[in-house]
Design a protein around this nucleic acid. Structure first.
Ligand code: FES
Ligand code: FES
Lengths: 163, 163
DNA sequence: AAAATACTTGACTAAAATACTCTGGTTTAT
DNA sequence: ATAAACCAGAGTATTTTAGTCAAGTATTTT
């Protein structure tokens, strides 16, 4: 779960679609580009990932564009960030070489693990819809209990499980 | 509040001092270097910051080394991370050019603001002592209410205020 | 059919941030 | 005096991120 400006752009774009694509009308990348000050080329790259992550649907040809693949209330910020960033660094340690101690866990392992969960719980509690509805107080959300959270699962996989 | 491996190293080093510097005996960087697999040069660079941040005290000459400048129960992870990372990026937007909209706030502003606070609240709730006491459950901490948190304040400043 | 719109893909480059090192000090205990 | 340790600046190397380019394909409109 990396937090980069790529993720920020991704969220901005998704929010833009939800705000501007009323009544099933697809939104073009060109329009998003203008409104959000993101270059068209870069958006294309972003939407490649969003599409692969199952978060948007595309319609080609004139009059085409992008639609959210699910209701805005069912797409979380975590979904978006996970989609646009690379596969996801695993447990921070098993695969990492530096910093982590060969074999046994270092003294700070728990800490970083807990921090990752803490961040994820927040991002997983906020939906695109909530960001659009400005009156929601994002500072006092009900978070899912720690036991229930499963980091590193993408929307596509969720869908696969459900069906 | 940046989350880099520099911060991780900083925390590891602080934890190491607390675990190994019993009874006021200073801990040498050489020792930390061996135990935590961090190069001596890099540690020297890190400790320059930790010292400047008022988090450690040093004793020079043979038999010297570093001591925590405060009880481990009073040093938070947020303190450490803020000390080792650069002055701090301001409000993410006023000064930022790209991504943010000139003049008025973008639609996702609230979100990133809330996320920053959420992360900070966690890091500010965990002390070096808690990391050392492995039995503490970092997944269910009491966090300070949002109103009370003041991000971007360094230990030195806190001290200045108190005295 | 032709043209225009808009998505699709892969590869590539540039810039910034990060991680890390090197060199040459200074202080102080023994 | 010597050695153990910290101190400080500047420098390099690597990695990551951000962003671009060029050459497509699908679909609709005229
Ligand atoms: S062993 Fe997992 S963070 Fe160090
Ligand atoms: S205006 Fe502050 S994040 Fe965009």
């Amino acid at each position: 779960m990396r937090l980069t400006s790529k993720g920020r752009y991704g969220v901005s774009a998704m929010v833009d679609i939800n705000n501007n694509g009323k009544e099933g009308k697809p939104v073009t990348l060109a329009a998003i580009s203008e409104r959000q000050f993101i270059s068209l080329s870069y958006l294309e790259q972003l939407f490649r990932s969003l599409r692969a992550g199952g978060l948007v649907r595309s319609i080609r040809g004139p009059g085409g564009g992008y639609l959210l693949a699910h209701p805005a209330s069912e797409i979380t910020i975590a979904n978006v960030i996970q989609a646009v960033n690379e596969p996801i660094r695993t447990t921070l340690c098993e695969n990492a070489v530096r910093g982590c101690h060969r074999g046994r866990r270092c003294d700070t392992h728990q800490l970083w693990d807990a921090m990752g969960k803490h961040i994820y719980r927040f991002l997983d509690a906020v939906t695109i819809e909530m960001v659009c509805q400005k009156e929601v107080d994002l500072n006092n959300l009900e978070l899912k209990p720690v036991e229930d959270i499963v980091t590193e699962v993408r929307m596509e996989q969720k869908i696969a499980k459900v069906s």
